[in-house]
C-alpha cells in the first residue's frame, strides 16, 4: 500500500468508526470498518505488511478507547497476518469466500477478546455476548467488507491505493 494511504487510515479510523458509521448502527450494532479495511490490506499486500498495519490500527484504536493498550493491536495484527496469508496462497479480491473469512475473523476476534476479558475481569456472559453483539457485528462487518472489496477491485481505486509493484502482482 502507498504510505499516505496508511497515514490517512491511521488519522481517520477512529472518527470514521465512531461518528460516520453511527448513523448506520442497527440496534446499537455497527460494522467494524477497521477489521474490513485490514482484511482488504491483507489481500492486497501480504502477511508481513498487513500484520504491521493491523498492529498500528489496533494500537490507535486502543489508545482512543478505554481498553488495554496493545490488546486490539495484538488481535488486529494477527488478523492482518492471517488475511495476508490467505491473499497470498488461497484467495483473490473477487472471491466470494472473502466475506465468509471476514465474518469468521470478526467472530474469532470477538471470542478472543471475550476470553481475555474473562481472564482479566472474571466471568463473562459469553453466550449473551456472542448472540447479541459478536455475531450481528461480524455479519454486518461482512456486508461492509463486501462493499469495500467491490470498490477496491476497480482499477482506478486500486491505482490510488496500491504501489505499482503490487498492482502488477495482482
Amino acid at each position: 500500500m502507498k504510505s499516505y494511504v496508511y497515514f490517512i487510515i491511521l488519522l481517520l479510523i477512529i472518527p470514521v468508526q465512531a461518528s460516520l458509521l453511527a448513523p448506520l448502527s442497527l440496534g446499537g450494532i455497527k460494522p467494524d470498518l477497521a477489521l474490513a479495511l485490514l482484511y482488504v490490506i491483507g489481500l492486497l499486500t501480504g502477511p508481513m505488511e498487513a500484520a504491521l498495519a493491523g498492529m498500528a490500527i489496533g494500537l490507535v484504536q486502543d489508545i482512543g478507547s478505554a481498553s488495554f493498550i496493545g490488546f486490539s493491536g495484538l488481535t488486529r495484527g494477527l488478523i492482518g497476518f492471517a488475511a495476508g496469508l490467505l491473499g497470498r496462497r488461497v484467495l483473490d479480491l473477487t472471491s466470494r469466500s472473502n466475506i465468509i473469512f471476514m465474518v469468521s475473523f470478526s467472530l474469532l476476534e470477538g471470542i478472543v477478546i471475550a476470553f481475555f476479558l474473562q481472564m482479566f475481569y472474571g466471568s463473562f456472559p459469553f453466550l449473551n455476548l456472542a448472540m447479541s453483539r459478536l455475531l450481528p457485528r461480524a455479519l454486518y462487518t461482512g456486508v461492509l467488507g463486501a462493499v469495500l472489496l467491490k470498490l477496491v477491485v476497480r482499477k482506478d481505486v486500486l491505482s490510488v491505493l496500491v504501489r505499482r509493484d503490487i498492482q502488477k502482482e495482482l
Binding site: I13, I14, P15, Q17, A18, S19, A22, S25, K30, D32, Q61, D62, G64, S65, A66, S67, F68, F71, S72, E109, G110, I113, F116, L117, R137
Partner: peptide, 14 residues
C-alpha cells in the same frame, strides 16, 4: 455525543 464506541474491546463515547 459526537462519537460512539471505536474499539471492540471497550464501550466509550466522545
Amino acid at each position: 455525543v459526537i462519537g460512539k464506541e471505536s474499539s471492540p474491546a471497550s464501550s466509550t463515547v466522545t
